[in-house]
Design a protein around this nucleic acid. Structure first.
Length: 807
DNA sequence: ATCGTCGATTTTTTT
DNA sequence: AATCGACGAT
């Protein structure tokens, strides 16, 4: 990540842009204006699917092509790294390798880049660690425990939520204390939590997610000369998804677009040997031009501090702004847009905006009400199979849901139906314990001040360093005012047993040795990330001890760690000069949508939040039920139901041609089953737009058109008995509930030996009798296609399907 | 210090 | 259903 300051005075400062025709080809008049307009600030209100990415990339390409700006003078902020990569690529297609020097990144990545360069200005070092939410919760947990704050009603999540909220409002401990009510003991306690938390972070040389933005703003405000460097550099700032910016992000943009006063400009450019910038009549460097793109109907991050006012009040905040509205939709059919418009028009305090298209009506929206979450999932699996057979690629199909917990039923059915799928977000690779452990080793050698990472790995693999020893080390560190890491080196002075002492010293010297390769003496190249990781893993016998374990899961864990090694190699390949810090940063800031791979050939499962900004040929919106969408937790929040409606709206507008809305009559949660009611939002869609295959009403009465797969389970041969058969258990002894719940997905049922051929009759526990029409695949992946007498056609993964041959 | 078991607690979305 | 913390046995 280099930071080259190029000479400023770009040619062609005057006159219109006179853009190349190719850049404007195929744009409608509004889009064209959004590309061509030049002025201090521009707000593009871009409805869903209105081609805003196209407009944004052409606008950037225009600035470069007309030589109004050098690449290095452009800062574009996107919502995900994926979107950033896509924008870079598309600008590259328009202007070639010029695109290299631009900053296109997320708020968080851009701030990390600035902070790494400038951290030394205010008590941090460039090797600072980024605490993700799990890390900061772990820290808060210690603090809450130490202070016994739970007696005042504080939980880790309430404290973390409150701190996050304050930081998003740019409040710090001092400013909060000024307005605090000191006669309220709970408030005093919170202040103490906040103070300790802040203190621990800075002692650990660490920032949490919110700090990345907030501290950058602080840096700019406290050090005008530092700020001047960036204000001078970035002449064109573009922000995507502006409706989801919070106050801190808004302030950051504001700071970056300020003009630089004459004296400071002179001083900074003189001191750094920089070319003299273009000045206005007062000798100041004018503020950068700002372009923001957003749609208040798609604001879905208020819970995270996103402030819709940022977009609503843009014209007031940035006087002389131009506002351009993009309403023509190039993505969806009119039926889908009609549904979206109808739903969103129920939010009253909005500027009226109606999406339209000339694509045509298209197919009706399909509705389905299942008897349970599994029934719903089965419907989705069946429809996906049909879509696939009619020529729709799996990668063009997505399934959305409100909460991550809903993936379970979907995954179970998808596995049984042998559908290739992938879950975006959810429990990520990097959240696995063994991966966090391995990462903590890397952090420990990158940032020795971080005690959290050190504590995590001190006893991984087992070295006999338990809580008691850890406390002793911490006490020693506190008494001698040194870091925990330093205390490890002094383990000999603690009077612990010889065995533990030896282990601690060995542990410390491994870290010291490897750290010497990370920060080598002047003139030598630092070690490669993969070499660093491998050195740590081999010397600590991390992988070896996992492989030696008798717990079967540890083998899988070892493989995950090997996978991490592969990730570091891949990283090194993509970034030949990438340092350990670059790697750690990249890992900390991956977003859910980032690991989306278009060529994957799998159905994508994700939350509605992750779906923002994406589009698919066919979309399944699941769990459209009260208490789920709108979610129960949103009911209390002011504006909650409206935000949930926008979430629904976002989901609908992701679909290009086909939209499926589904719900279930009963929904399992925390081990018990609850009755679910259709979402209020369903009624907001005009009835003629939806073709109900099984409507909520039909499902309630006895006239369902689909076979009652789950009723069959209850009435006929019960699931439990056939599973007992499969597992060859004595019939008299029913299995425990918890045991057979997992058998569906686990491999306890193993039909590998079952020989099936087209024409065979089979009996399925849920679907009844049917005839095999085809068998494809090999071994564990053998799939049977069965035409059931009453349940229709299904694809089944033979190995785990609850079926048997009948004569 | 470590391992296993029991019981309580979970309750949204994410950089 | 699954995770986490507390507690007791080795």
């Amino acid at each position: 990540m280099t930071f080259v300051l190029e000479p400023f005075d770009a040619p062609n400062q005057t006159g219109g842009p006179g853009l190349d025709d190719a850049l404007l080809a195929g744009l409608n008049p509004r889009q064209r204006e959004a590309v061509e307009y030049r002025g201090p600030s521009l707000l593009i209100v871009a409805g869903a699917g209105s081609g805003k990415t196209s407009v944004l990339t052409r606008r950037i390409a225009g600035l470069l092509q007309s030589r109004e700006a050098f690449p290095s003078q452009i800062l574009a902020i996107t919502f995900t790294n994926k979107a950033a990569a896509e924008m870079r690529e598309r600008v590259g297609q328009l202007v070639g390798n010029q695109a290299e020097g631009m900053w296109i990144s997320t708020f968080h990545s851009a701030c990390v880049r600035i902070l790494r360069r400038e951290a030394e200005n205010f008590g941090f070092t460039k090797s600072f660690t980024i605490y993700d939410s799990a890390d900061s919760r772990a820290l808060l947990k210690r603090i809450v425990k130490e202070l016994n704050a739970d007696t005042y009603g504080f939980t880790v999540s309430s404290a973390s939520g409150k701190i996050s909220k304050l930081k998003n409002e740019l409040q710090d401990v001092e400013s909060y204390a000024r307005g605090a009510n000191f006669s309220d003991p709970a408030e005093v306690m919170f202040l103490e939590i906040f103070r300790r938390y802040t203190q621990e972070l800075s002692r650990a040389n660490a920032f949490d997610f919110d700090d990345l933005i907030g501290q950058t703003v602080y840096l700019f405000r406290a050090f005008p000369r530092v700020a001047a460097l960036y204000r001078r550099r970035f002449r064109h700032i573009l922000v995507d998804e502006y409706q989801d910016t919070n106050h801190a992000q808004y302030a950051l943009i504001h700071e970056l677009t300020r003009p630089v006063a004459s004296e400071i400009a002179e001083e900074v450019e003189g001191a750094n040997g920089l070319t003299r910038s273009h000045r206005d009549q007062h000798g100041a460097i004018p503020g950068a031009s700002l372009t923001v793109v957003g749609d208040s109907d798609q604001s879905i991050y208020a819970f995270r501090g996103a402030d819709i006012r940022n977009i609503v009040e843009f014209e007031r905040d940035f006087p002389n702004s131009r506002v351009i509205l993009l309403e023509q939709n190039y993505r969806s059919t009119q039926n889908i847009l009609d549904a979206a418009n109808a739903v969103i028009s129920n939010n009253f305090d909005r500027k009226d905006k109606k999406l339209f298209t000339d694509i045509g009506g298209g197919e009706k929206i399909v509705g389905f009400t299942g008897y349970s979450g599994h029934d719903e999932a089965q419907f989705i699996a069946d429809e996906i199979t049909k879509l696939h057979e009619s020529g729709v690629d799996y990668k063009d199909i997505a399934v959305f849901y409100r909460t991550n917990a809903q993936t379970r039923a979907l995954e179970e059915i998808f596995i049984r139906s042998a559908l290739p799928y992938r879950v975006l977000g959810g429990t990520k690779f990097y959240e696995r314990a063994e991966i966090k452990d391995a990462m903590a080793y890397l952090i420990a050698v990158a940032n020795p001040a971080d005690p959290l990472a050190l504590r995590r790995i001190m006893n991984v693999p087992k070295r006999g360093i338990g809580p008691a020893t850890e406390t002793a080390l911490q006490r020693y560190a506190d008494a001698h005012e040194m870091s925990l890491r330093e205390a490890v080196r002094h383990a000999g002075e603690l009077g612990l047993g010889p065995k533990v002492t030896g282990e601690i010293l060995e542990f410390g010297s491994i870290l010291d040795d490897v750290m010497a390769t990370v920060y080598p003496p002047e003139g030598q190249a630092p070690a490669k990330v993969s070499d660093i990781l491998v050195a740590l893993l081999t010397r600590t016998k991390f992988v070896d001890s996992l492989r030696a374990s008798r717990d079967a899961q540890d083998e899988a864990r070892a493989e995950n760690v090997e996978e991490l090694v592969a990730v570091t190699k891949e990283f090194q390949k993509n970034h030949p000069d990438g340092t350990l810090l670059d790697f750690l940063t990249e890992v900390s800031l991956v977003a859910a949508a980032d690991d989306l791979d278009d060529s994957s050939g799998t159905v994508s499962l994700m939350t509605l939040h992750t779906a923002k900004g994406l589009e698919y040929e066919a979309v399944f919106l699941t769990g459209i039920e009260e208490d789920l969408l709108p979610h129960r937790m949103s009911a209390g929040e002011p504006g909650g139901p409206a935000e949930e409606r926008r979430l629904f709206y976002v989901g609908i507008t992701r679909a290009r041609k086909r939209l499926f809305l589904s719900l279930a009559m009963t929904r399992a949660a925390y081990g018990n089953v609850n009755v679910a009611m259709p979402s209020r939002y369903l009624q907001e869609i005009p009835a003629e737009l939806i073709d109900w295959r099984q409507s909520p009403g039909m499902a309630n009465s006895r006239g369902g058109t689909e076979p009652r797969a789950l009723n069959a389970r209850r009435e006929g041969s019960s699931w439990g008995s056939s599973l007992r058969e499969a597992a060859a258990l004595p019939p008299g002894k029913p299995r425990e509930k918890t045991q057979w719940a997992n058998m569906v997905t686990n491999v306890v049922r193993d039909n590998s030996a079952l020989v099936l051929a087209a024409g065979d009759r089979v009996r399925h526990v849920d679907f009844g009798d049917g005839r095999v029409t085809a068998v494809t695949g090999e071994g564990a992946k053998r799939v049977a296609e069965v035409q059931f007498d009453t349940a229709g056609r299904k694809r089944l993964l033979v190995k785990i399907a609850p079926i048997e041959k009948v004569e």
